[in-house]
Amino acid sequence: MELTDQLGREIINRLSKYIDVPINLMNPQGKIVASTDPTRIGQSHGGAITVIETTEPQFITAEEVTHYSNVKPGANLPIFHRGRLAGVVGLTGRPEQVTQAAGMTQGSVEIALEQIYIQRQAFYQERQWNHWLQQLLQTEAIDREELVREASYTLRVDVNRTWQVLVFQAEEPFELAESLQTMFLDEDYLFILPYQDNMVIAVLHYPDASSLPFNDIDSLIGVGEPGFSVHGIRQSFKQACEAIDLSGTKGEPIYSRDLQMERLLHNVNADTFHEVTEVYQNRLQQLEQVYRITLTQFFKQDMKMSRTAEVLHIHRNTLIYRLDQLTRKVGLDPRHFKDAVILQTILIHF
């Protein structure tokens, strides 16, 4: 990375607040690209050219200014980035008075260059992963070999491993993605990316997802089943999304493996579902909400009367009365297995 006009101006604006002597930044060709003295921008700096040729610091006294073109007394130091000369920084003044500030400026510029480089690399890699993710999730037929090849040669990752997808639904997906990257810093993950308007996708190497703390995350969290390579990631993503759709409590991960029956019923043929359930669904919708709440808890507690009454904070006889009323008004008895399956299917599709 080299010092450019835009980068130099940004650095000068920051440094000039703390250093009260004139500062010049020169590119690897010796041209002043940024300066606290705008009239010098664009000029060639003789001292910087010497630094570039020797890669050594150049200290110019008042008596030596005539030896160089377009210079003033001061200290000129080389700026390196990843072993390559990126430019030169020059501070105007008596060399013995500005050398220390020049060294600090040199270090600050090199640190700034590295930070900007890392940010750009991260941004570029995130864009590549976003493109890869779009190809994986938004096309009906995926080219598995091409996706594996792109991950290997462009992103430098071997995706032929077992992965597990976590999907987070949040109002601020970009902030959540940054928090998750910090939280998963020691984990083996493929990527953590904001996706669409309110979603963050994290792809972790299995079985890392099972031991992560989620208590402090104000989000719906769906966890798909482990899957191998690109097809496994795609399938695990769909499972995680479906888990959120079927059941969700913020801060508590919803594992697809715990919702096998619900997933099966959720994917019943639409025509058959409406044909069988329409009349019962209409009747159930006309009931007061307390009946649907009671029915949901009854199934959630494995159709156990005492446990359901305890969770609802009602007497067992009250529960029996509600179930009797529901049976009479809807035409299905949730205490009978076949009727319970139909009612559970209706609740899942509500």
Rank of each mutant, 00 (worst) to 15 (best):
N70Q: 15
F214L: 03
H315I: 04
T50N: 12
I233C: 11
Q106V: 07
Q281A: 02
P207S: 06
N160C: 00
Q325V: 14
Q58V: 14
F273P: 02
V21N: 09
V203Q: 04
V279Y: 11
D218A: 08
F214H: 04
P38T: 02
A86T: 01
I192Y: 07
R156D: 09
T154S: 11
L343E: 05
L176A: 05
A340K: 05
E110M: 15
Q281F: 14
H266A: 11
I217N: 03
V71T: 08
I320H: 00
C241G: 03
T272C: 06
E150D: 05
N27Q: 07
G251N: 02
I192R: 05
Q134V: 13
L284I: 05
M1L: 12
P226Y: 08
S16P: 01
R120V: 04
V65P: 08
L180N: 05
I217C: 06
V65R: 12
L287E: 03
Y291C: 05
R234H: 11
D245K: 15
N267Y: 00
M305L: 13
R161H: 14
P38Q: 03
E310S: 13
T66G: 14
S229I: 04
L246H: 03
R328S: 09
E2M: 13
L85F: 13
A202H: 13
P38D: 09
V109L: 08
G232E: 08
E172H: 15
L166E: 04
Q281P: 01
G8Y: 00
D218Y: 00
